[in-house]
Simulated assay, not measured.
Amino acid sequence: MQQDGLILELQNGNQRAFERIYELYSESIYGIIYSIVNDETLAEEILQDVFLKIWDKAPTYNSSKGRFFTWILNIARNASIDQIRSKSYKNKQKNLKADNFVDILESNSNFTAKTDAIGIKKYIDILKPVCKKLIDLLFYKGFTQKETAEELDMPLGTVKTKNRACINKLREMLAE
């Protein structure tokens, strides 16, 4: 069955079409969700919620407004972001923090592993500590700029300016 026919069957409530769509897209969607939440169990829960939304909202999909994959990708992305912005998620994250932890960037091998995995560890190590903190919070932990400002007890405008400067410095180093 072609994709258009499969989508039409899904929109008509065909359970087999839904199962086939799950088979085709679940792995990619899980990867996207996981890249946002960085938690396997949570990513699996969100994946199930996303496919329930796909089933429920299938009749609202309109091919003239965009590709089907983009439509389900947006559902997954929004569900993931909603989850990490939720109170329960934030409370869970706060429970993980403790005053006696050494600076998480300097001691956290997870950050080192992530930067090493994408080949920029040696460049990040050269950056100022504030840049390391900003990159960790904004890019690896998915904080918004406002959340980063609150976390670092820094004005929002300063976070934006420093983030731009840090990213530009990183770009300069990578271009050398």
Rank of each mutant, 00 (worst) to 15 (best):
M1E: 00
Q3V: 07
Q3R: 08
G5T: 08
L6D: 02
I7D: 06
L8T: 14
L10T: 03
Q11N: 03
Q11E: 05
G13W: 00
N14A: 09
Q15L: 12
Q15H: 12
R16S: 11
A17M: 05
F18M: 14
I21N: 02
Y22C: 11
S28K: 14
I29A: 01
Y30W: 12
Y30T: 05
I32W: 02
I32S: 03
I33V: 13
Y34P: 03
Y34V: 05
Y34A: 06
I36E: 04
I36H: 01
I36Y: 05
N38Q: 10
E40C: 07
T41M: 08
T41H: 10
L42V: 15
L42P: 03
A43K: 03
A43N: 05
A43E: 02
E44T: 10
E44D: 12
E45H: 08
I46H: 01
V50S: 02
I54Q: 01
I54K: 00
W55P: 02
T60Q: 14
T60R: 14
N62G: 02
N62K: 15
S63G: 08
S63A: 15
K65Q: 15
K65C: 09
L73Y: 15
I75F: 06
A76T: 03
A79I: 02
S80K: 04
I81Y: 13
I81D: 07
I84K: 12
R85S: 11
S86V: 09
S86N: 10
S88H: 10
K90C: 04
K90I: 15
K92C: 01
K92V: 01
K92M: 11
Q93R: 15
Q93I: 13
Q93A: 12
K97M: 14
A98G: 10
D99C: 07
N100C: 12
F101V: 08
I104R: 13
I104A: 13
E106F: 10
E106T: 15
F111G: 05
T112A: 14
T112N: 11
T112F: 13
A113E: 12
K114R: 14
T115E: 06
D116K: 15
D116M: 13
I118D: 00
G119N: 02
K122Y: 07
D125R: 08
I126A: 08
I126R: 13
I126D: 07
L127I: 08
L127W: 04
K128C: 05
K128Q: 13
V130D: 09
V130N: 08
C131Y: 09
C131D: 13
K133D: 07
K133P: 02
I135R: 00
I135K: 01
L138N: 01
Y140K: 06
K141S: 09
G142R: 08
G142F: 05
G142H: 14
T144A: 04
T148W: 02
A149Y: 04
D153G: 05
D153L: 10
G157S: 15
T158N: 11
V159M: 06
K160H: 01
T161E: 05
K162P: 02
N163H: 10
N163Y: 09
N163E: 14
C166A: 08
N168A: 12
R171W: 00
E172C: 00
M173Q: 12
L174M: 15
L174T: 08
A175R: 11
A175E: 14
E176T: 08
